[in-house]
Nucleic acid binder design. Structure first.
Lengths: 344, 344
DNA sequence: TTGAAAGCGCTAACAT
DNA sequence: ATGTTAGCGCTTTCAA
């Protein structure tokens, strides 16, 4: 209401609004003296451009949206670093929205992104029903990260969840586990089902029987991990190894094992998915499948920016590799396993 | 370009744009049959309002910004939950920006917030020089959270850092520590200096001498905590107790202590600031000062929304209490201290 | 109760 | 090289 507009600058500098606009947008053909005068006026008046107006006129923004399924998960916050670096190099800014694994919240943020005409959006879908069409219908490019939508043909960046889960399962089998339990992820997400499928493939390749009782979902949340682990421990034939399908659930699992007085790997071997910043990798020494989180963010953003710039190409599926990092929690029988007991 | 505007709806429904606008904004005085027709057309055409245009006209948005100083810090992500709940109840959406403790990044997000004309902004300032004037000059309400700006009179929500740090220090003294080290926070933040001051006050009250060598800054980051702890351990007279001024640094400290083969509380008593989601409180059993993160987010947002709605009142300083939660890492001499050694 | 018209701040086509 | 003008999509007086 009472702030400086491009008109004010123009009047004060004694030029037309168009000239001010040109200077501000780096248009070459403006006389040096005028440019000088405009710039001086801009800073003396403290002029700040109004993006809403600019965007409305240009029909384009330089803001990228990231709709995250759970902001308390370090996987995403670490990924965001990669997004921000890639975006800021290209002159875009990034705003985040937290869907909190709630399809309704997610929907409302998709609507915000559409209504705000964001230049492009990165989504980690909370379900298979995620309404990305709200964006694509408006020609707003979308790239899915981490998870993807089977029903929609879109660019995506993921890790090879199937292989990683199979590796983890095989590793447990190699350590001598015969009954490997799975604390599974959220049903209705591709990560959840790929890791489940990889687990099954691992069992098969190891020649171990599949026991459905050994599979319990923890919904990718800490509390879910806790409950799922309790259920598994209370089984008539409890597992001798555990593969936990994400980092948050691993926290819940560790806590439950401690509660039950079970030690890993001695009483039960343990492999998690995703590091927890450096935390899980620390003194807890949990074997985990490590994802290249920063890289995921960068690659997804690079892809998104190409779409934003109007490039047209068949949809790309970038699949990065996740690596099993073996630490103490899964190493059985080795004399090193209990070599360095953490302080009480 | 090729999407549905209010004009299209108007034309198709056989009314004027003004009428469509009225229906969409819940204006009473529209004939029921027209309202009916408009609504039907809106959904059949798949019309979505363009916020940029609306905001430009109204000179107001319903988006709140949160500029976070470090998104990988669970303190902030947990706080954001409170922000989102309070905002969505009031019909506002929330976008986050990560300043990453970098004043330049922070500045660029302040500019984004101003240019996007956000309704209000929550800021946790990265330094004392944070340019909130970019917002306040445009009459965009700002509330600072966690940290505040001494040079600017603004609403703020913080915890009583001085008292909390004093309590932590006194607790260590009571456990028999005579040389209490401080892994201090970022200089140039109020949290950093309040916790430092509280530490000094605690020493004084405990009758312990102040030794400047025992104070090393870790800049609120994991790596900083690691380095600061190393420096403290290498002192000619190393500390027998450690107060670490935030959660990320506590991770670094724990790691360094482990590396050095030092056990806590046996070799050195340890108190951290902020829980790390539930992680630090888990089997690591670190004594911490716990902040009411969710509450901080809620209260700050409630305050911000009152300003957004135009309420005028003297600037409020809400100070919440942080509580010392005593766990094993600081309890010396007690027989319980090493009762439950975590599994290797 | 409804419509016509103006204008939010900016940019871009057109004119000079 | 610079200015004039129109208009992005929407809301809101004002008039009818």
């Amino acid at each position: 209401m009472s702030y400086v507009t491009i008109r004010d600058v123009a009047r004060t500098a004694g030029v037309s609004p168009a000239t001010v606009s040109r200077v501000l947008n780096g248009d070459d053909r403006v006389a040096p003296d005028l440019r000088e005068r405009v710039l001086a006026t801009v800073s003396s008046l403290g002029y700040r451009p109004n993006h809403q107006a600019r965007n409305l006129r240009r029909q384009a923004t330089t803001v990228l949206g990231v709709i995250i399924s759970d902001i308390t998960n370090p996987f995403f916050t670490s990924m965001v670093r990669g997004v921000e670096d890639a975006a800021s190099e290209a002159g875009y800014s990034v705003v985040l929205a937290n869907a909190d694994e709630d399809p309704e919240k997610e929907l409302s943020y998709l609507e915000v992104a559409a209504a705000e005409q964001m230049a492009g959006v990165l989504v980690s879908p909370a379900s298979h029903e995620t309404r990305v069409d709200l964006l694509t219908d408006r020609n707003i490019p979308v790239v899915t990260v981490d998870r993807w939508l089977p029903a929609v043909e879109l660019d995506r960046v993921t890790v090879d969840n199937h292989r990683a889960a199979k590796d983890a399962t095989l590793h447990l089998a190699e350590q001598g586990c015969r009954r490997i339990g799975l604390v599974a992820g959220r049903p209705g997400t591709t990560t959840g089902s790929s890791r489940l499928a990889g687990y099954k493939a691992g069992l098969e390749q190891a020649g171990l029987p599949l026991d459905e009782n050994l599979i319990v979902s923890g919904g990718f949340r800490i509390e879910g991990g806790r409950e799922a682990t309790r259920r598994l421990l209370n089984l008539p034939h409890p597992p001798d190894g555990l593969f936990v399908a994400n980092n948050l659930m691993t926290i819940g699992t560790i806590d439950t094992l401690d509660e039950a007085g079970l030690r890993y790997p001695d009483d039960i071997a343990l492999v998690g998915f995703d590091d927890m910043a450096p935390i899980l990798g620390l003194r807890s020494a949990i074997t985990t499948v490590r994802q290249p989180t920063y890289e995921i963010g960068r690659r997804a953003t690079d892809l998104l920016l190409r779409r934003v710039r109007g490039e047209d190409f068949p949809s790309r599926h970038i699949v990065l590799q996740a690596e099993l990092t073996v630490r103490q929690s899964s190493q059985r029988g080795g004399k090193d396993a209990a070599a360095e007991p953490p302080p009480a």
